[in-house]
Nucleic acid binder design. Sequence first.
DNA 1: TATTGTTATACTCTATAACTATA
DNA 2: TATAGTTATAGAGTATAACAATA
Lengths: 165, 165
Amino acid sequence: MIGSMETKTRSTTGAGAAASLEAHLGYWLRLVSNEVSGAFQRALEERHHISVAEWVALNQLATGADLTPARLATAMGMTRGAVSKVLDKLESKKLIVRTTSSADSRVQELSLTAHARRTLPSLTEIANGNDEHFFAVLSPEESSTLSELLRKLATAHHIARIPVA
Amino acid sequence: MIGSMETKTRSTTGAGAAASLEAHLGYWLRLVSNEVSGAFQRALEERHHISVAEWVALNQLATGADLTPARLATAMGMTRGAVSKVLDKLESKKLIVRTTSSADSRVQELSLTAHARRTLPSLTEIANGNDEHFFAVLSPEESSTLSELLRKLATAHHIARIPVA
DNA sequence: TATTGTTATACTCTATAACTATA
DNA sequence: TATAGTTATAGAGTATAACAATA
């Protein structure tokens, strides 16, 4: 049972410490995160044939910010080349449009299509449902606590890039 | 600032909910997990030139269980083909030995080399240090709480496979 | 010269499925 | 026929670096 399990989480960094996989918080974090993200990834793929990276890009565009491939690359922590491929896929699916900027013709202005705007609520539903499904076993207080602890870690380590994988 | 951000974590699953990326617990989980795992992966690669999958395999062998490629594949949630490649790398690095079983010559018995046993403590130190570095910003009580919440989620969803990616 | 975006190339990781050698 | 392990092939994902067009 969980309640009876060893919950010591701060090692003494002793050289001979016999640390099994399960002794690390990072292990449990990755275990749970992989499950949640994996389920989300499969749901997006099966129901809309889009990847998590594509979903993130769509969400970034939906915030209303004037985005270009370079800015999107920075926001997503990817190279411009990688983002270019993501945009190729979104364009082939008629979810975005690339328009050459009139002010600087090197720049591409990115925008969502009407089709994308109609599709986004369904994608959001998948994200909501996935979260709901996984975290429903926690009480509202526990969910809040988990959220606060994760945000505290993100803040303390200045984690900014949007996770795509 | 993050501290002043909306921390509501339970959506009402309403169709029109304007859910930004940050509204989902799964987002924060992936954000933090990617950072912790990414740092660990880079440290393993830079200091010992081994991947996380290789590290997991070594740890499984170090538990003392009599493992074969097929059993290791089941434990790690990978196909036999994928495990075979991981074992190729470990063998080329002189960290494991494959021995044909005398009872059934189709079976390979896996074992760690003396070199692997000498190397493992250093790998464990990297894992300990990585955990220490990331979770030191939490109080011991907060670390315990985070551990318990993650274990509760893992148990509730019967998450068993060892995360490799 | 510097910058934007794309493309060519390569590498890692993993899955599917065919293959071999046993049993 | 069935099983253990390997290998051939393919695909996703992403990085590096070269490239064309523009500034």
